[in-house]
């Protein structure tokens, strides 16, 4: 409970991305495992989102000109109006909002360059622009990241879709500012199917709660093709599919998940339990049939049927209101017990 109280205090900081990396990780882990805090976090984010719906404000030309001349930028520089969101916690500064927005854009584009070349006049490159990471440390796929301006390239290539710009000036006396934003970028992670980071990434994709995303369905199909190969078998992938099988409300996705598990071996106890639960409880008969086929494959591969599996099969074979094909298949599997 004390942990939840602390979490509630941290949520505004988490929302404004003001927590350190370790604290952030701890916070997310707690939220993932605590229903109350997950609900609270959801509410925070909803409020945050609503605040973002406030009308956009155009920067007055006079102020823009004054500001740009202050930092030495060209009058011809292109300033793109952006939508700003207000934090529910402490406001970053008392500046008028339009001023903050103007500053956001300029700092965003030139901030990193300025950080490394404070004495030279700042020039805003005309584009195209994407943010390229030159960080030497392993790339972390996380909801939020904190980058030091000196660690990112001053070149902005392509046209990154930057949204929700925020400013952080935790200590006005330390000569440090921060700019937070969401940036949509295309990331391609390559590696062997057995690479742990790829396995983790795919598990994450499979377990995402957005069950109606076509990309997840495609991900399951792809996982099936890749990880059905015994050389690539990975229990973490199987466990992720087992979670999909247990939790997904999309029946087509559950069917795909159990089809994939059917072709994968060997199964962990968690996977086997998920198959048994699906056989017992899934309302879709196709899922139950495929769960049976998966259990049958396990038995053929030499996995002895444990007492729980046998009881479930016996109950299924005897269940009058079960689909006859499921009953027959359950009986067939039982008949193979040595």
């Amino acid at each position: 409970m004390a942990e939840c109280d602390a979490m509630n205090e941290q949520m505004p900081l988490l929302l404004t991305e003001s927590l350190g990396r370790e604290e952030r990780e701890r916070a997310h882990q707690h939220i993932e495992n605590c229903a109350a805090c997950a609900a609270e976090w959801k509410a925070y984010r909803a409020t945050w989102s609503e605040l973002g719906e406030l009308p956009e404000v155009e920067v007055p030309a006079r102020v823009k000109e004054q500001f740009l001349s202050t930092i030495g930028a060209s009058r011809d520089s292109k300033v793109i109006p952006m939508r700003s969101r207000l934090a529910p916690g402490p406001r970053p500064s008392a500046l008028p909002r339009w001023f903050a927005q103007a500053a956001a854009v300029v700092i965003l584009v030139g901030g990193s360059y300025y950080a490394g070349n404070r004495t030279a006049p700042l020039r805003v490159l005309p584009s195209p622009a994407t943010i390229q990471s030159v960080e030497q440390t392993p790339y972390s796929i996380a909801e939020t990241r904190v980058l030091n301006a000196s660690a990112i390239s001053p070149n902005i290539e392509g046209r990154p879709n930057i949204q929700n710009v925020q400013f952080v000036d935790a200590d006005a006396s330390d000569n440090q500012i921060g700019v937070s934003f969401d940036v949509t970028s295309r990331v391609t992670v390559t590696g062997a199917p057995t690479d742990k980071s790829l396995v983790r990434l795919l598990s994450y994709v499979l377990e995402r709660d957005n069950s109606t995303s076509p990309s997840r369905s495609n991900a399951i199909d792809w996982v099936r093709r890749t990880y059905s190969d015994p050389n690539h078998a990975d229990p973490e992938i199987a466990d992720a599919l087992a979670k999909v099988l247990r939790n997904d409300t999309h029946e087509g996705v559950r069917i795909r998940a159990v089809e994939t598990l059917k072709d994968m071996s060997p199964a962990s106890s968690g996977t086997r339990d998920a198959l048994i639960d699906a056989l017992k409880n899934d309302p879709n008969p196709a899922v139950r049939i495929k769960a049976l086929e998966a259990l049958s494959n396990l038995a053929k591969a030499g996995t002895a049927l444990d007492a729980k599996t046998i009881d479930t099969l016996r109950a299924k074979a005897s269940q009058d209101d079960e689909n006859p094909y499921v009953r027959v298949k359950a009986a067939e599997l039982l008949s193979e017990i040595p």
Binding site: E251, G252, I255, P283, N284, P285, A286, V287, I289, N323
Partner: peptide
């Protein structure tokens, strides 16, 4: 000739 294809549950 087309037709009618129905399953109570399945792809």
């Amino acid at each position: 000739e087309g037709g009618t294809i129905t399953t109570g549950g399945g792809t």
